[in-house]
Design a protein around this nucleic acid. Sequence first.
DNA 1: TAATGTGTTCTATTTAATGTAGAACAATTT
DNA 2: AAATTGTTCTACATTAAATAGAACACATTA
Lengths: 124, 124
Amino acid sequence: MIIRIEPESEIPIYIQLTNQIIIGIAKGDLQPGDSLPSVRSFAADLGVNMHTVNKSYHELEKRGIIEIIPKSGAVIRKTLHIDRDTYNRLFEMFQPLIAEALVLGMTKEELVDLVEGIMKKMST
Amino acid sequence: MIIRIEPESEIPIYIQLTNQIIIGIAKGDLQPGDSLPSVRSFAADLGVNMHTVNKSYHELEKRGIIEIIPKSGAVIRKTLHIDRDTYNRLFEMFQPLIAEALVLGMTKEELVDLVEGIMKKMST
DNA sequence: TAATGTGTTCTATTTAATGTAGAACAATTT
DNA sequence: AAATTGTTCTACATTAAATAGAACACATTA
C-alpha cells in the first residue's frame, strides 16, 4: 500500500496519514483483521515522527476503524452496520461539502456522478 | 438566516461560520447578488471578533463563493459552471469522506441516499 | 460638509495545535 | 534473554486560532 505524505501541505501530517489509511481500507489494500505497521517502523518508512503516527492510529480508533491492542498492534476492525451517532457525524461532515459543490455550480446529477465515480474506485 | 456558533467546538469558529454561510446560500437563504453583513456588525451579532469574520469572508472569496468589494461589502457571486481546479479540489475533499463511510459499513445505496437526502434540503 | 460605516492593515497578546525529540516503562513476541 | 510493542512523560519550536486595539483611505449617509 502506497502512502504519500506532503510535509508542505496545509493539511496536518497525521490527517493526511489517517485519510490515506482509510482510503486504503476502502480500496481493499487493507482488509479487516490485517495489522497496521508498528508506529515506529511506519514512522521510519514515512520519514515522520513516531508520535505523529501514533496520533493517526488513535484518530482511527476514535472513529471505530481500527482496534489498538496494547503491547501488540493496530488491527483493522470488521465493521458491522453503521450506528446512529456515526451516521450523524458523517451527515455533519458531508453537508458543507455538498452545499459548497452546489453553490459552486455543480448540478445534482453531476454531484451524484462524482460520488458514484469515487465509490467505483473503492471495492468494499 | 440563522447562524449558530459553538465556541467550545473543536472546529475553528471561522470554519463554522464559513460552512454555515455556504449552507445558507445552498438553501437559498442567501442569493447571488445579496450582500453579507459588514464584518463589524456580523461579529457583534455572533459575539466573536471582527478578524474572525474577516477570515471567513476571505476563505469564501478564495473558494470563489463571494466577491469582496473593498470599502463596500461582500457579495454572493453568481456561479457559472464549475472549472477543473475546483472539481479536483472537491474530489480531494469528498474522497476521504466517502471512503470512511464505506469502511464504517454504509452500503453504496445508503451513501447515495445520504447524499441525495442532503441535496433535497438545498434549493439551488 | 460632517459624520458614520466600510474593508484593510498593523501590532500585540494569549491559547491551542502540530510536529519533533528523547527517555523510560511494562508487556508481548521472537 | 533480547527485541519489539504501545504507552506515557517531559520538552521544545513553530504555526494556527482568536481576541484586542488602533489607524488608514474610501464610500455612503445625514
